[in-house]
Design a protein around this nucleic acid. Structure first.
Lengths: 114, 114
DNA sequence: TCCATAATTCAACGAATATTGAAATGATGA
DNA sequence: TCATCATTTCAATATTCGTTGAATTATGGA
């Protein structure tokens, strides 16, 4: 992951509502959730929600697909893992023992590099 | 870790210069680096650097100590691990197999919960 | 004490961010 | 086609953010 991508991902997560949205999606798993159900769960105006979805998507953290008249958003676990790896990269100058590679949340088909 | 703390930490990291500073400190290890050496390494004005140090410190991501006339900054690995854990918390609804706990960068005395 | 070095404080500026309200688009079913 | 529901687009606003320059505090050495 490039530094620019990491900054984008971090900035996308660095906001109360977006962090809520993202964590809801992370919990929800690969099947995702509809925009409407998220709006209900978090009590957010639909246009506000769209704004935040766009930011999360531009940061590569979530995906969308249409299902009927609903939009289904889902977390991108591969990007999450890439971000975690980036943050801990070369930790302590790479001195073994203290620093272990990060691996988390790799559901079904999304097997990551680490 | 509370959501507010996570947002603060993410916001602190969601900026090019601060991410550079933080990663430099993460690489440097528990001994940390002086403000001056970071200023030189990243070619940043000292007052700009102070501004960013404050943000990182308020977010709980780094510590400071004085050594002579230099200020030594160091990464707080415990907070980094707390943040990583927070992000992956309840991943996929906690469905086993897919989601493993995060552990990374726990130098010498700073053994974390995980 | 006087000076140089290291870092911080303060004020100010342009740029980016989050939210709101009103209007528009797209998809479904009668 | 018409009405309805789900979501998006657009324009406007107040707030926050990052950087700069000048001045200040703090430490150590001559």
């Amino acid at each position: 992951m490039e530094k620019t991508d990491a900054v984008a991902a971090l900035a996308a997560l660095a906001q109360h509502n977006r962090l809520d949205i993202y964590r809801l999606l992370v919990k929800a798993g690969p099947d995702g959730l509809s925009a409407g159900s998220i709006a209900t769960a978090l009590e957010l105006a639909p246009n506000t929600l769209t704004f935040h979805f766009d930011r999360l998507r531009q940061a590569g953290l979530i995906t969308v697909r249409r299902a009927g008249r609903s939009m289904i958003y889902a977390a991108r676990y591969d990007q999450m893992n890439a971000l975690l790896s980036f943050l801990t990269d070369n930790c302590c100058g790479g001195s073994e023992a203290h620093c272990v590679p990060v691996t988390a949340c790799a559901p079904k088909r999304a097997k990551t590099t680490a």
